[in-house]
Design a protein around this nucleic acid. Structure first.
Lengths: 335, 335
DNA sequence: CTGTTAGCGCTTTCAA
DNA sequence: TTGAAAGCGCTAACAG
């Protein structure tokens, strides 16, 4: 515990620098010397002070991740990808959970600092132009996961295409009265989420392509979550002419829709088809038709891109597109 | 970015130490001087280097958390409690996800080091006596969450009582043939989890109290997860004399049991009652009868205890018992 | 290949 | 109250 590099140097009868070289696997040490040093290190049970190394090298050996609502299954799965990748390196993962707009802004402002972290991953929260400028100024490499922003690097999926995919699936099953349940616009705007908005866009785009006039009464938005989605879906199902199918902006919200159907005795998929988004673990359990996206991989890939930046290569402000696909299950059927 | 404490001192015409005192809110600075320094700090847009402060003070300002399978809903919820508590302090949360035994051992050995972290939280993984000794030797304050170990501090729930509670509920509903689906004993042993084992103990204890002879064929163990639980439950339900009720060691496993019932056309709760454990978010959605435990609070409380230790008070090697309760829902009914 | 030296930017004595 | 000075334990540049 108490042994320092100096103690080792003295005991091994070498210079301080030599010990440092051994510690850092420098090739500039003769095998004999190296062995001697290693022996002393073992004898003294010496471990270099991480904190001192960080200070001297100016690196923190941490990667910070800002994640909104990190208990959401989709976010957790991304985090797992991040953690697994990081665990194979010597970087540590520092997590910032964001559940309020204030914290979003604080995190985005304070976390990216060279003396706090070596690199930053941001999940789902898109930095605004001004924030992009600040981020860039800090010099901390940043990679966005599940969102894009001008001038930033990242991985994402085409949520417009995803919303389109979900909607097309329903249209091709013969549905014409198709509802949409998504995130509250205020919430989306405050956090600057992009996905729910884009999924809605995809939904509208699909309708248009098939010449279906979108019915504004069929589009509902509320705080993200099962409960709110349930309320919204109940409203939809109680319309004079209710939709025969509903596209939900996430699997969690799709679950709320399923609950609403259950509440009102609407049979799934006989009287109502439901499509979710994300393909979280439980979707399969529920037999939920959904749009699959590579959650785990998005985290892992984000780390890879960050590593590239960390190893000196300048981060190209390019966004890598990950594939999505529709997984038809038991909640959708012909109209 | 580039300004250092020296620049500030020079510009404010004070000594280096005075600036430091201002930064640390020391009362030993005259209001006038303080103000002058603060002005300069603002002018220069100076922020102290966190990394240097850490080095000089010997603190990392991080709390490490070792969490097994942190994507499990119960674990995530504990983490949320931890994160929320930490976010109100100036400690950062460093997360280590453990999904293999090797990593468990490595984390428990390498993470707790004064130069790496100021404090350690360990979720669900009980350190063995030898590990307890090592942990203690490092001098890093450790708090266990959801498990106990001799000589360590922590918060936990009485899983024996919980298993008993679940089983009693069934017995009182008239069930006599009650099965148990829990974690694989090898897995439990390798990670040194305590809860599944204790829940089984509670199950047996309840049976005994009511004079029911436990049937070994009714007790099944498999890798934690929905899938394996489903397989095990299917076996149970296909016995010549199948149980009329099943206690699962977790809600996730209870879900597997529900799937098995669905597979075999067994009606819930008419022909089979099921009780879970944890009361994770989805339990309510599924109408799952379960044993509720304060997951979020366990994390938050763990941090509080750690803070006490961090602020100098020696950690009493005491375990704080959190309350549990049975939540009857729709998966249990009279036999 | 190896030893020496100069910091990294703070916190914390110790005097004044 | 304040200033000056001594490190914290290491990395990295430089001289040999």
């Amino acid at each position: 515990m108490g042994a320092t590099i100096r103690d080792v140097a003295r005991a091994a009868n070498v210079g301080l620098g030599t010990v440092s070289r051994v510690l850092n696997n420098s090739p500039l040490v003769s095998p004999a010397t190296r062995q001697r040093v290693l022996n002393v290190i073992a004898e003294l049970n010496y471990t270099p002070s991480q904190i001192a190394r960080n200070f001297a090298s100016g690196k923190t050996l941490t990667v910070a991740t800002i994640a909104p609502f990190f208990t959401r299954p989709s976010v957790v799965e991304r985090l797992r990808g991040i953690e697994l990748m990081l665990s194979a390196s010597n970087y540590n993962l520092v997590v910032f959970n964001v559940e309020t707009v204030e914290r979003r802004d604080v995190c985005l402002r304070d976390v990216p600092r060279r003396d706090r972290t070596d690199g930053l991953l941001v999940i789902s929260l898109s930095p605004r132009p001004q924030e992009v400028a600040m981020l860039r100024q800090t010099g901390v490499p940043v990679v966005l996961i599940d969102t894009v922003a001008d001038g930033m690097a990242g991985v994402y999926v085409d949520d417009v295409a995803g919303g389109d995919l979900a909607t097309c699936h329903l249209i091709e099953l013969g549905h014409r009265r198709i509802g949409f349940v998504g995130d509250s616009l205020e919430e989306v705007q405050a956090f600057n989420f992009t996905s729910s908005r884009n999924r809605l866009r995809g939904y509208l785009q699909a309708l248009e392509r098939y010449g279906i006039v979108p019915n504004p009464a069929y589009q509902r938005h509320g705080i993200h979550g099962r409960y709110e989605a349930r309320v919204l879906a109940r409203e939809l199902l109680q319309l004079a002419e209710p939709p025969t199918a509903i596209v939900a902006a996430s699997d969690t919200q799709a679950m709320g829709v399923l609950e609403a159907a259950r509440d009102l005795g609407v049979e799934i998929p006989a009287s109502l088809s439901v499509v979710g988004y994300d393909d979280i673990d439980i979707a399969e359990y529920l037999g939920l038709t959904t749009v699959h996206q590579p959650l785990f991989d998005s985290g892992a890939r984000g780390v890879e891109i960050l590593f590239a930046a960390l190893s000196g290569e300048p981060v190209a402000p390019a966004h890598e597109l990950l594939p999505i696909k529709l997984i038809p299950r038991a909640t959708t059927a012909a109209c």
